[in-house]
Every structure is written in structure tokens, then in C-alpha cells.
Design a protein around this nucleic acid. Structure first.
Lengths: 156, 156
DNA sequence: ATCCATGCAAAGGATTTGCAAAGAT
DNA sequence: ATCTTTGCAAATCCTTTGCATGGAT
């Protein structure tokens, strides 16, 4: 999903809830969906800095509030990777990816694995539960010790 | 591991690091390992309250500091299950369990699954990583809608 | 005597909230 | 006109820290 589609989705969501699209909300949404931030998993602060570059009059609270709206309408997900920092990433409804974090350099890699998802369902069922969500983060070190090459790969 | 063993482990760890076992550290360790808290995944505050029942002169900071020591020597693990609360649980080195959280009543069930662990290794290897740790939390609802029966089961 | 530990209160960091002013329709 | 949004600062929540006092050897 690109920035324009995200903005459109926001407009619909806001409309359905008696809320309004504003210049600030548009800016935050666009920055959040900017291709520059692809795979960046930015913190609120990182996002705030980028937002400020686009419009220096936008306040911290507005970024928080807009991020909350984006999360509510499924356009954003909050993630936490053990470093006491909440990070956000754009999401689509059909997106089920999880993360692998390099414990050496902190790089965050994404992957999706149907087999693990299936197993998670089986485990939940074993307890009499139907799975509604899951969080999984793997932590590891490059086998060859080289983050430069190992942590910069993209798709798997 | 029971409270006594935990205390012994602490004594060794403290000794190795030029630190001392004290009445407060003993109390916190014993409370944390009390059978009453089995599977309770207490928050710091919950623990603090229990600790106070045992010795009302122990301060909040001491609970935090002791929990940190327990974590350092592998006797405790911090967990976070989406409710912005850090919870602690006793751990042993060979313990690899993960959690299933009931999204209705908040119950926290534990499970261990060798197959998922294996898959996690495979995924890490696919990226050229060797797995050092992982976090996995499943969220689900009781299929029969009944938390009373479903969320109180113990081992699987 | 020398270190370490403790309790308290203050400080920190992240996030939320109250409120008066500004904006949208 | 009415209702929402914004920016700021203040308030919260959780956790850590500085410091003077107390404890252990």
C-alpha cells in the first residue's frame, strides 16, 4: 500500500467515526508511508523528526494521536523488540509477517512462514482456543559474524 | 526449582560478583518463588505487595533491584503481553516455554513446542543467523466461549 | 574501616491528557 | 454555530538513580 492509498483509507475510517482528515493527519500518514521508511520500523521520535521536516509546526502529541488512529484502522502496528522502544510499521490486513532481530547490530529483518502459523493454530486448538493474534520475534547472530552482508538482505 | 534452591543460586551469583545476600534479597527471592505465585506472571507491583506482606519495610526500589539481579543470574525473566505491563516469571536454564494469552479474560497459559522451536532455528538459518533467543506470544479466545473451564487448564 | 545495600524522594523517559485557541464544515 | 483538532505544558505511569543512613565483615 502506498501513501495515497493509506490516506484514502484514513479518510474513510475518519468519516465513519465522525472525525476529520486534516493537514496534520495527512502529513503524518504520508511520512509514515513514505518509501524512505520502508522496513525502517521507526520509533515515535524518529517519525516525529521526519514529520517535522515536512511540517515543522506539528506537535509530538499529534504524532502520537495520529499513530493511534492509524493503528485503529489497521494501517499501523506497534511492535516492541526488547529495547524498550515502541516501533511502528505500516501494515495491511493480509500481512502476517514476523521479525528476526540481529542481536549484534539491531537490524530488523522480516519473514513470513506459513508452517509456523499453522503450528500456532494447532497449539491454540490444543488448549481449546481459536487464535486471534500472535507476536513472534526471533533474536540471533550472523553465523559468519558479518552484519554488513548478513543483516542487509531483503526478502526470504 | 523451589525457593530454597533459588536462594542458593542467588548466594552463589552474588558471591561471584562481590555482592552480598541480605534479608531483603532473600525475602524477594522467596516470595518470587513461592508456590502461591506458580504461573502467576506477577507484575512488579503485585510482587511488591506480596513482599510487603512478608516484610513491610522493604522498598519498591529494592524489589526492582532484586528483580534485576534475579534476571541477571537467570532465575527470572521479564515478559510483556501486550498490556503495557512488565511481568516476571521464575525460569530455569532449560526452560523454553512460550505463552498463550486469553484475549477475553487475560489468563496466561504456558506451553512448549519442540516443533516450533525447530522451525524457528530453520528460519534463522535461512537468513544466515544462529538463534540466540525468541519471544512468542499467542492470543486467542476460548472456542466454547467459556473462560471458566478453558482458561484454567494447566499442562499441555 | 571499608564496602555494599537500603529506603526515600527525586529524576527520567515514554506516553497521555486538559485546555484554550484554531480549524473545518 | 458547532464540533473536532491542535499545540503546548502539565500530568501519568513505570522504572532508575542519587544520596545519606544503616548493615555486614
Amino acid at each position: 500500500m502506498d501513501a495515497r492509498q493509506a490516506v484514502d483509507t484514513m479518510v474513510v475510517y475518519l468519516g465513519q467515526n465522525g472525525l476529520k482528515m486534516t493537514a496534520q493527519r495527512r502529513t503524518v500518514t504520508e511520512v509514515f508511508y513514505d518509501p524512505d521508511l520502508r522496513g525502517a520500523h521507526p520509533t515515535v521520535e524518529e517519525l516525529y523528526i521526519k514529520v517535522r521536516e515536512a511540517d515543522s509546526r506539528i506537535g509530538y502529541a499529534t504524532v502520537y494521536r495520529t499513530l493511534k488512529l492509524l493503528t485503529e484502522c489497521g494501517l499501523a502496528s506497534a511492535r516492541r523488540f526488547g529495547d524498550n522502544q515502541t516501533r511502528y510499521e505500516p501494515t495491511s490486513p493480509d500481512d502476517h509477517h514476523d521479525h528476526l532481530v540481529c542481536s549484534k547490530c539491531g537490524a530488523i529483518l522480516e519473514f513470513e512462514d506459513a508452517e509456523i502459523e499453522k503450528l500456532q493454530d494447532v497449539i491454540a486448538a490444543r488448549f481449546g482456543f481459536s487464535l486471534t493474534d500472535h507476536k513472534m520475534v526471533l533474536f540471533g547472530e550472523p553465523i559468519n559474524g558479518n552484519c554488513e552482508t548478513t543483516c542487509n538482505k531483503s526478502e526470504h
